[in-house]
Design a protein around this nucleic acid. Structure first.
Length: 838
RNA sequence: GCCCGGGUGGCGGAAUGGCAGACGCUGAGGACUUAAAAUCCUCCGGGGAUUUUUCCUCAUGUGGGUUCGACUCCCACCCCGGGCACCA
């Protein structure tokens, strides 16, 4: 599209041209090679649904810049891409459009692939995986069987979270404030069903401890979120005998503050505690209690209600005996005690727990202080608010033989006594629960077990894997698993006795798929094992993992769990899959994240058609630092587009004359002033851009520096006057190379225009020359009492003794000193002189 | 309530104890053009003085502090965003 003899920047043409060349030259294909240093950079794999928008593109662009920089720096870079292809939306779309989930999914994958290719991301597409393919999900099944053998997969009847809209079970992690994570307006209900679980709790301690390995490499807040989620709590179980029901089991409570047990004035059970019914039998309180119980059990589970709900409860009419002193205290039922946490029962110590305090206040139960601060005002009991919740400095009072001990001493001693006398023991509990993986859905990995009347539950043999999904399911989207409605799938023979048997009809949570997919990239077509351990040994751990903060808990916790299981199976030797994690900010429009449902997406293809991929890439890198949210601005994109046009025109203007020129071996001794300025700016820019790429990842300021460099070249035009061709070429080449990782298509084109027949991809990242980057002259800021009063240009490297007289000689400085005495002088070489006068 | 982030011009942002506002967007004025687009040039935080040149001063959420010097470090508070939450 030349106008006259001036070429124009045409991204559509350029981008396709270089994408084709890269593919032909197989530039991004990579193999394990122990002779070379490796770098594994990975962006979280997408769920192929809807359209790819600029929010996605930002994520992939960040990864691509890193991949390209590392390649230029000599690393053997693996940068793969794949599809998280199982999941409910495919099934829902299939029901709606009367098609097959596979059709819908594969169409989306094809579309996603097209868009990612259009943006020129440097993926090794030979490693592409799709989790809905039997060649992938058979290994989900294989891992499941290994876990089953080790007791890490088990089945139990349990209350599960049930979303009435999804008509399926949700993991705890998929319940957000009591609502379904997919349906923000739908309250989650609970049901009792036989479910499969993976024993994540068996690794709770390791998942917590190994967070230490991630410090420095993972964002602190992700580590904190995981730590909170695992929720380790050290305490003790203590049994309180029921005093007035013959033969009743004791009530077991969990407490982190056994030292306050002499202050217990009640025992409180959760409304759903199994002992409640027994205690109420024949109790005088029975009638009133039943009504209250019913109300409590169906109380709202909404988080905002829970937090503000008033404490409620009732006396059971029964009493428990404090095992330490035999004191009889009433047994209550309270709405704030959770059956799911600890033992479902607490000892109520109103003086030292806010909730207990509120409860006792309401129902007139006594408050008894048992820990007093060492100094300051003593706690008064009835009139105080609950205090001293953490074990600070203090000593026990009203606690029999333990009086005078510090809380920590008392905790140790009392737990020991409880153990010795058999009514309690120290225990550590976790908030983390086992991972419920059963889904009553079609579009997922079938769980590879069968049920036989004779042999009960029998695992499918490895040789019979994969258990493949039936091709033509009846999909209704409601209730039971669609697989249960498919006789040809359900009916099978028992692997043990050969008799008739039924297959398990649940499929696995899709988080199973994404828990280990990055291992499969190392060896994507292996049909003997999930992967070759030697290949994984070369590539792992992932050097840089990049994704949204939304996965800070679920995906990353499950992946870490899976890694540890695989390690214990002897498949790998490391304990954590990703050495470094980067969580990029969201792309927003109108203040909210881009999403199809909100209708505020900027489509990636639209962007590519209007401005080209390079402009889109540049803009998402330039508009904000990568970890921050970015507000999309249609106007600002123009700036990135204009900049690339300017660069194109600049190189175009000079390229013809420079094609045959070599930039190497510039005689810098003979440099003119203009040349010095150019070379200095070039190498200063290179130094700082290199730093930005390597350490800070502040691509926005790196781009600003490159723009400044361009502006300097422009300011020195016409370059033909007193700038030798080799210097001109050096400047333009460095400009091109620095843009390379961010706008790779344009950079390749410019590189070619500058006379290179080999692609830019064959070139190493340039080394900056510190001699050329050195300033000969620097501007020194002169302050008087910390206020800038003058600036002087001086030769670089002057000493304090040389600088101070120059500072004093400035008229503005002399004026501000105004005859006063200089009491102190601070000199920062090449930067600043501060004269302190009194 | 607890735990993280964050608060800088009209806007996105820069400045890792040393010139606050780089770079870009928007806006204004000008050049080119029959005209428009594109392109190029100039200006662009507030107040004041000086008038056509510079100087002074205020200003990085608020108030204190440390320091020769603070957007940056410390303390307290306000606001915004996110995570967790009757977790015993």
């Amino acid at each position: 599209m030349a106008r006259g003899n001036v070429a124009e920047y045409n991204p559509q043409e350029i981008e396709k041209k270089w994408q084709r060349r890269w593919e032909e030259a197989r530039v991004f294909e990579t193999e394990a090679d122990p002779a070379k240093p490796k770098y594994y950079v990975l962006e979280m794999l997408p769920y192929p649904s809807g359209t790819l928008h600029m929010g996605h593109m930002r994520n992939y662009t960040i990864g691509d810049v890193v991949a390209r920089v590392k390649r230029m720096r000599g690393f053997n870079v693996m940068h793969p891409m794949g599809w998280d292809a199982f999941g409910l939306p495919a099934e829902n779309a299939a029901i709606k459009n009367n098609t097959h989930p596979r059709t819908w999914t594969n169409n989306n994958i094809a579309e996603f692939q097209r868009v990612l290719r259009r943006f020129g991301f440097s993926y090794d597409w030979r490693r592409e995986i799709s989790t809905c393919e039997p060649e992938y999900y058979r290994w989900n099944q294989w891992f499941f069987l290994r876990m089953l053998e080790r007791g890490l997969a088990y089945r139990k009847k349990s209350r599960v979270n049930w979303c009435p809209k999804c008509a399926t079970v949700l993991a705890n992690e998929q319940v957000v404030n009591g609502y379904c994570w997919r349906h923000e307006d739908t309250l989650v209900e609970t049901r009792e069903i036989e479910q499969w679980f993976l024993k994540t709790t068996a690794y709770a301690e390791q998942l917590l401890d190994d967070l230490k390995l991630l410090e420095g490499g993972w964002p602190e807040r992700v580590i904190t979120m995981q730590r909170n989620w695992i929720g380790k709590s050290q305490g003790a179980r203590v049994k309180f005998a029921v005093a007035d029901v013959m033969g009743a089991e004791p009530v077991e409570v969990f407490t982190t503050r056994i030292d306050t047990i002499y202050g217990a004035t009640a025992v409180i059970l959760a409304p759903t505690h199994p002992l409640v019914a027994k205690l109420l039998e024949g109790s005088a309180q029975r009638g009133e209690a039943d009504a209250k119980l019913g109300r409590m059990r169906q109380a709202s589970v909404k988080a905002e209600d829970l937090a503000t709900a008033e404490k409620e409860g009732f006396f059971t009419g029964r009493h428990a005996a404090n095992p330490f002193n035999g004191e009889k205290i009433p047994i209550w039922v309270g709405n704030f005690v959770l059956m799911e946490y600890g033992t479902g029962a607490v000892m109520c110590v109103p003086a030292h727990d806010q909730r207990d305090f509120e409860f006792c206040r309401k129902y007139g139960l006594p408050v008894r202080v048992v820990v007093q601060p060492l100094q300051g005002e003593q706690f008064a009991g009835e009139t105080m608010a609950a205090a001293f919740d953490d074990h600070g400095d203090g000593k026990l009072v009203n606690s029999g033989p333990y009086n005078g001990l510090s809380p920590d001493e008392a905790i140790a001693k009392m737990a020991a006594v409880a153990k010795e006398k058999g009514f309690g023991r120290g225990e550590t509990i976790f908030r983390l629960k086992d991972w419920g993986i059963s889904r009553q859905r079609y579009w997922g990995t079938p769980i590879p077990v069968v049920y036989c009347a004779k042999d009960s539950m029998v695992p499918v043999a490895d040789k019979d894997l994969p258990v493949v999904l039936p091709p033509n399911p009846k999909l209704t989207g409601m209730g039971e698993s669609p697989l249960a409605e498919t006789p040809e799938f359900v009916n099978t023979t028992c692997p043990k006795c050969g008799g008739p048997a039924r297959r398990e009809t649940d499929t696995m949570d899709t988080f199973v798929d994404s828990s280990w997919y990055f291992y499969r990239y190392c060896d994507p077509h292996n049909d003997k094992a999930p992967y070759d351990s030697a290949k994984v040994g070369y590539w792992f751990p992932i050097d840089q993992y990049i994704g949204g903060i939304t996965h800070a808990i679920l995906h990353l916790l499950y992946s870490r769990f899976w890694c540890k299981v695989m390690r214990d199976l002897g498949l790998i030797t490391h304990s954590e899959p990703a050495a470094r994690l980067f969580t990029q900010g969201m792309v927003q429009k109108g203040g909210v994240a881009m999403s199809k449902s909100r209708g505020n997406v900027v489509g990636a293809l639209d962007m590519a058609e209007k401005y080209g991929a390079d402009t889109g890439r540049l803009y998402t890198l330039f508009a904000a630092p990568p970890e921050k949210d970015l507000e999309w601005s249609e106007e600002s994109i123009e700036g990135s587009w204009r900049f690339l046009n300017r660069v194109f025109r600049l190189v175009d203007r000079h390229a013809a004359a420079l094609r045959e020129v070599k930039s190497a071996g510039i005689d810098t001794a003979a440099a003119t002033e203009k040349e010095k300025v150019l070379l200095r700016k070039a190498h200063q820019t290179l130094r700082r851009v290199t730093q930005d790429f390597e350490t800070r990842w502040h691509f926005n300021s790196a781009i600003a520096l490159i723009m400044e460099f361009y502006n300097e070249i422009q300011a020195q035009e016409p370059l033909e006057e007193s700038v030798r061709p080799e210097v001109r070429k050096e400047a333009l080449e460095l400009l091109t190379l620095m843009l390379g990782p961010m706008t790779p298509h344009l950079a390749e084109e410019l590189w070619e225009m500058l006379g290179h027949s080999e692609g830019l991809w064959t070139t190493s990242w340039p080394a900056f020359d510190s001699d050329l980057a050195r300033d000969e002259e620097v501007e020194i800021v002169i302050q008087v009492n910390g206020r800038v009063r003058a600036r002087v240009k001086v030769a670089a490297g002057l000493s304090e003794a040389e600088l101070v007289p120059k500072a004093l000689a400035e008229p503005a400085v002399a004026q501000h000193i105004n005859g006063k005495r200089v009491v102190k002088q601070i000199v920062v070489p090449d930067k600043l002189v501060n004269l302190v006068v009194a």
